[in-house]
Write a protein that binds this DNA or RNA. Sequence first.
DNA 1: AGATTCTTTTGAATCGTCTCAAAGACTTGG
DNA 2: CCAAGTCTTTGAGACGATTCAAAAGAATCT
Lengths: 337, 337
Amino acid sequence: MATRNIKEVAQLARVSVGTVSNVLNRPEIVSPATRERVFEAIKKLGFVRNEVARHLRVGRSRTVGLVVLDVANPFFVDVAQGAEAVADEHDSMVVLCNSAGDPGRERRHLDQLEQQRVMGILITPVETESPWVEELIARGTPVVLVDSPATGLQCSVAVDDRLGGQIAGAHLVERGHRRIGFVGGPPSVKQVADRYAGVTAAVAAADGTVELLTFTGPTLTVAEGRAIGERVAVLPPEERPTAAFCANDMMALGFLQAMASHGLRVPEDLAIIGYDDIDFAAAAAVPLSSIRQPRVLLGRTAIELLLEEVVEPEQHRHRQVIFQPDLVIRESSAMLR
Amino acid sequence: MATRNIKEVAQLARVSVGTVSNVLNRPEIVSPATRERVFEAIKKLGFVRNEVARHLRVGRSRTVGLVVLDVANPFFVDVAQGAEAVADEHDSMVVLCNSAGDPGRERRHLDQLEQQRVMGILITPVETESPWVEELIARGTPVVLVDSPATGLQCSVAVDDRLGGQIAGAHLVERGHRRIGFVGGPPSVKQVADRYAGVTAAVAAADGTVELLTFTGPTLTVAEGRAIGERVAVLPPEERPTAAFCANDMMALGFLQAMASHGLRVPEDLAIIGYDDIDFAAAAAVPLSSIRQPRVLLGRTAIELLLEEVVEPEQHRHRQVIFQPDLVIRESSAMLR
DNA sequence: AGATTCTTTTGAATCGTCTCAAAGACTTGG
DNA sequence: CCAAGTCTTTGAGACGATTCAAAAGAATCT
């Protein structure tokens, strides 16, 4: 209720508002005696600076928006933690928004962030071609794309998903699998399309006897993975793939559960490899093999690029940073016998 | 760069700034012709309302801060999703902050949120007695405590953790366990203390032959659970508990991994029950029994209480809403033979 | 036409802080 | 004691949107 302002502080300390502002922003130019008096007044009144008014005057906010595809996916939580760590060092704040894969939600979040005049936005867009994002940039909000290809209008950080898919595919082929299933989400999601392209390439590079089956659903969740798993589990053994490459670990975990509930053994009856290497992958019923991405680093780099753009807009050149994924082998893709 | 303001819109539409503001906030009182003209100008200029300035004038923000103990814990992600769903309906925004169990980080977040003049704050405090929170309230920011007991200065939502601990303990006792381990974090965390009190009560209520061992660490993470598990696994069988009640599912998952890596079978050699029933619990190596909390409902209720307080401060009476936990039995605590 | 009522539009004041030119207070040297 | 510098402090504009009393314009009635 009783929010004090700079004027009340000035009154109590018997100085002008300008001086109070100076104490707050450049204490070194104020004489020690005055400074002390102002600090006392601040303390006595319980004054808390109104960042909103400050921002209105200064014109630049200290918060960064991070819009992710799915907060429930630990992958994005880790990206967020990376971003937050850097923001913290620059006493900025990251506000985490969840588009949940819905373009409508994504747009609402972008609108809100723009209205708040955030310093910039980090986003994993729902759709690759996003006019909203381009307009946002045109109107002056810096954007860094996370895990999505840049169009040249902005910076981006990503992991080479095609390579990741290829590594996963090659691993399964090398393990002797000849009928591989790709368990993914909508191909409109860039990550899915790239990982699929990668595994396709790996299969093509094999001796021609390897078959690739595709199973997709609308989302990339545990539930979706389970649902697809149910469909796969009931296939006759001769049609059923002997290995599945899941577009992410959430799906892989769901898929794995479906196998278990149908009495199929992993990896004996069906091997599984996921993507992201979230912490829970190692704790799964059968520890999951996965393609590891530098999640935290992704977030760190994204916000660093953003800060660079904000601090020196003039000499900033948009860049695309691409990281390499790693293969992590665990029990779920152990050798076939 | 080129951020347009209401004045430019007014100029282009050949009306006063007051009219533009009216079009934005109460379009029905503006004549259709004028309204149309203003909308066109807005579109042509790519004008986006400056929420900061609006807020400065109106004095109330549309964002709510949510400060959680650990974003990596899916429990809190679900609470956040519940809160966000309600905020969405009231076109507000939830900004998610992670204290990571560190009072310093918590304080920094609270300071920042207060400076931003958020509408209110939902928080799971690191420490039960938090002078910061009380001062915050005294200065006029409404607060709702999540999963923490209220002091009467604010509303709170919580789940009866003591009861949860009791249910878990009773379950293990009933399954025939006579040496039960409690795997928890620092007792300064209210949740841990309550769950411990609950299991203690359950043990005391048994026939007196049940022993309760306590293993604690500084955090409530997967890694901590694993570390404690390592210690427990190497105990001689006659000292090792036959069942473990973990303070949350993250710890339980880590603990379970440690058992597996030491060749101990769950539940045969050691039964496990966790707390929270996060989605990953069911997908664990051995599906985890757990105490389920209404996570999403917790978030929904918290923000509803906050909104109630903000909308009608006069007739608002602080309330404490307490939910009941449920027992979910899975393989990890199946009957002893 | 003039009076009355209703609908629209106007524009100055306001929210809390920062900026910056200018004034005021002190020093120092001559 | 004065002039010329330093330090400090001052206070009048911004910043962008909202509000609201009052003015202007339309419509209705006598």
